[in-house]
Amino acid sequence: MELSIEYYLILSAFMFIIGVIGVLIRRNAIVVFMSIELMLNSANLTMVAFSSYLGNSIGQLFVFFVMTVAAAEAAIGLAIIIAMFRNKKTLNIDEINILKW
């Protein structure tokens, strides 16, 4: 393939870093959760890029498993967010500090 793999890896690194910054700067629990999804997606992009450039389908198989785990994680995480909102009436993660000593 004429386009070299570095382009894909740099796009993936950029999206991962944006996800990290999103987790660090945002105070809304749902947006923090969406940033985690963004990081999972950038890892997927790396795996698909290597799988395609090596001509080996195992990487895409693992992307399939990552998507399964992401779906389970989204369901559980949103259930936790709903339970948290019911108890504290807020989604701001600075105010949800019941585990802080």
């Binding site: 450039y53 001509g55 389908s57």
Partner: peptide, 23 residues
């Protein structure tokens, strides 16, 4: 060590037949 497979191998790796067979 640059990674670069042929386009045919890459297309074959992405098809649902290949992934399903491994799965």
């Amino acid at each position: 060590n640059p990674v670069n497979a042929s386009v045919e191998a890459s297309i074959k790796a992405g098809t649902i037949e290949e992934i399903g067979k491994q799965l």
